[in-house]
Design a protein around this nucleic acid. Sequence first.
DNA 1: GCGAAATGTTAGCCAAGGCTAACAATCTGC
DNA 2: GCAGATTGTTAGCCTTGGCTAACATTTCGC
Lengths: 151, 151
Amino acid sequence: MNDDPHHTLSATSDDRSPDLRAEAFQGVRAARSRELAEDYVELIAELIHAQGEARPVDIATRMGVTAPTVAKTLDRLARDGLITRAKYRSIFLTEEGRALAKECRHRHDIVLRFLLSLGLDPETAERDAEGIEHHVSERTLELFAAFVARS
Amino acid sequence: MNDDPHHTLSATSDDRSPDLRAEAFQGVRAARSRELAEDYVELIAELIHAQGEARPVDIATRMGVTAPTVAKTLDRLARDGLITRAKYRSIFLTEEGRALAKECRHRHDIVLRFLLSLGLDPETAERDAEGIEHHVSERTLELFAAFVARS
DNA sequence: GCGAAATGTTAGCCAAGGCTAACAATCTGC
DNA sequence: GCAGATTGTTAGCCTTGGCTAACATTTCGC
Ligand SMILES: [Mn+2]
Ligand SMILES: [Mn+2]
Ligand SMILES: [Mn+2]
Ligand SMILES: [Mn+2]
């Protein structure tokens, strides 16, 4: 099964042009640069929904980083127009931040449900989804959603 | 379809403990810190196989970064025992680097074939695989492989 | 075998994203 | 309503991974 009788079975070759490959890596780097903001706004939205407010201390606990790290990251998110922030007050999402959070939660959900549909245990599914979600194209997401719906 | 008649349909809740969630994010950060080394050794192995040697200029072209960026990254890989390197000479993998490259190529292949099996077009599959491969657990990889074999 | 082209290195800059130490503000319990 | 606990901020340090500019070495063409 999935034996390839002709040109050696491995999918290893990769005959794409150097430029095409470079574009792929550039895309991955771009996605990586968005990861942190995506996870933060998603978490902030969830905290606001569940606790009524998003406090830095709760973000720090759930992200597994220290409070100063959260503070600096929040400053960058504010600079980038995703949140608003006042000294010693809890965090609010901007319109843009809310839109991003919604999109991210949607992506996270689909990836998670897809992994669960495949038969993965819930804890591993959550862990893998947390990383994979940022690297799934729109087309792939649609295929994942279709698979979940079908199963 | 995928309507959940009881507790509101979203998979959004996420009732995991803060600590468990923190561990997931810490795992993702750890994976992210390995990404670059993985892509480099995989590419170096492939260049050695295809061209007979791995030259910085070819790495730079395919990674889509400048030559000094490659040089600095190669220095870190050498420091970490994955490659050996002499001034103005091409790059060699250490035993450890070769082992990592093999593992990464294997993972890359399975993720790629899985996405293709799902029905994704080859170019998008390559792009997504390049990012996803670093965030797939052993269990998930097995499920992907099983799906490829079954289809 | 020499000059030009290609390749590689070094220095130095920058932003992101981690951390600890020290301090400031707020909140809570009594 | 105050003391102590909790929470938040600031300053400063570090590594990673990008970049450009300048220079060094190697390779190629003839
Ligand atoms: Mn995530
Ligand atoms: Mn997420
Ligand atoms: Mn990759
Ligand atoms: Mn790869």
